[in-house]
Design a protein around this nucleic acid. Sequence first.
DNA 1: GCAAAAGTGTTCCAGATACACCCATGA
DNA 2: TCATGGGTGTATCTGGAACACTTTTGC
Lengths: 223, 223
Amino acid sequence: MNPYQSPILMVDSVVMQLANDALQVLLIKRANQPFQGMYALPGGYIVAGETTVSSHERILRSKAGIEKQLLRLVEQLYTFDTVAGDPRGHGVSVTYMGLGLDIIPTFGGETQQPEFFAVNALPQLAYDHAEIIAYAHERLKSKVNYTNAVYALLPVYFTLTQLQTAYEAILCRPLDKRNFRKKFLSLDLIHETNEYQRDGAHRPARLFCFNSARLERSPRSFD
Amino acid sequence: MNPYQSPILMVDSVVMQLANDALQVLLIKRANQPFQGMYALPGGYIVAGETTVSSHERILRSKAGIEKQLLRLVEQLYTFDTVAGDPRGHGVSVTYMGLGLDIIPTFGGETQQPEFFAVNALPQLAYDHAEIIAYAHERLKSKVNYTNAVYALLPVYFTLTQLQTAYEAILCRPLDKRNFRKKFLSLDLIHETNEYQRDGAHRPARLFCFNSARLERSPRSFD
DNA sequence: GCAAAAGTGTTCCAGATACACCCATGA
DNA sequence: TCATGGGTGTATCTGGAACACTTTTGC
């Protein structure tokens, strides 16, 4: 490939959600060369008239059937120069992270069935996508420490146990129940409701709700 | 301008250094429309065969006579879609922050003389460059809290007072001398030397040195 | 009554903050 | 000897970590 052409503009997307007490990331098995048969992040070229944001939305819709409303938080991660390892040659890839809940990817017509994989049990990945996912995971770990970003991964009403489980899945370590509750409640990011969740032979759990469904920075950091 | 063309790839650069106990940023007075006569960050188009990194280096060299070795720390900031306020139309701008010391910008041939301005006393800026500078400043504020990033703004040998002054200029607030020293020394990012700086009618100041001239993350955060 | 998850407080320790005086030098 | 910036220690407070039992429910 001619090394003296303008860089190609691409977008790659790290879509994450929680399932089975684990943080999962959306991957697509590549149908074509290069990296045929390996898994990759959904991504594609920016076409005429698109911003990176609108391109990101189009790519998720066309490759995984994910409408933009499903992603409750979208954040730009980093822009990579992909000169070396990328067989397509010289390109610039803008990466975004999208967080949601109960996302069911569908066959987009252009690709094989997209699937979610636990971030701790990824298959072999094409390009440098393993690093991009690791970067997204790090970003999320640090974001949940000083923002309400978890709201994007949880239902509107949730129990403190669900909240703690979400943090444990993101941070990949167990947290103390009493300290977690004391600390999180002191951040003033959530408020209790008068509703309870009854789901088994045990005491019902009070449901809580985030004060804001937009990203807010907490004055104090969490961890 | 035709809204249905591919986005133009650009690079903008926030070059910062310390002078007169203030954090300064490099600006160029625009010679041409749009925003003729206003100040702007050095920036330009990515041309054939360039990565964003090499484009950044070329633009600083050609517009401000700054060689890449002068920037002791370069970090990518964010990639902006510049659809709205930008009269050039639809573009994507990758922004970098570069930190250095004793940088003397020179006329690059293509532009008017570049100058450093204190970040707290900026002139009116073209495009959304005021926001980009604010973003860079925020990034730097948070970076110096958990990394050794200040090394890039200080000489190799420096006194603790110089170090504290640098932190005060970056964080825009005064710090307690005894607490600052105790805290910073406990981070194990610097070591003392046997050299002293003599510069006036007062006790000489011991010179210190960073353990690493690469970006290192301190295990504990500073503030 | 028993299994299962919800809910709740205290003690201890480390790190943050506040604060004022003596030291070494050059003029 | 004096003016100037360099250098140092303690007391207090706040937030983090560790830790175990009672409550409410469904079966």
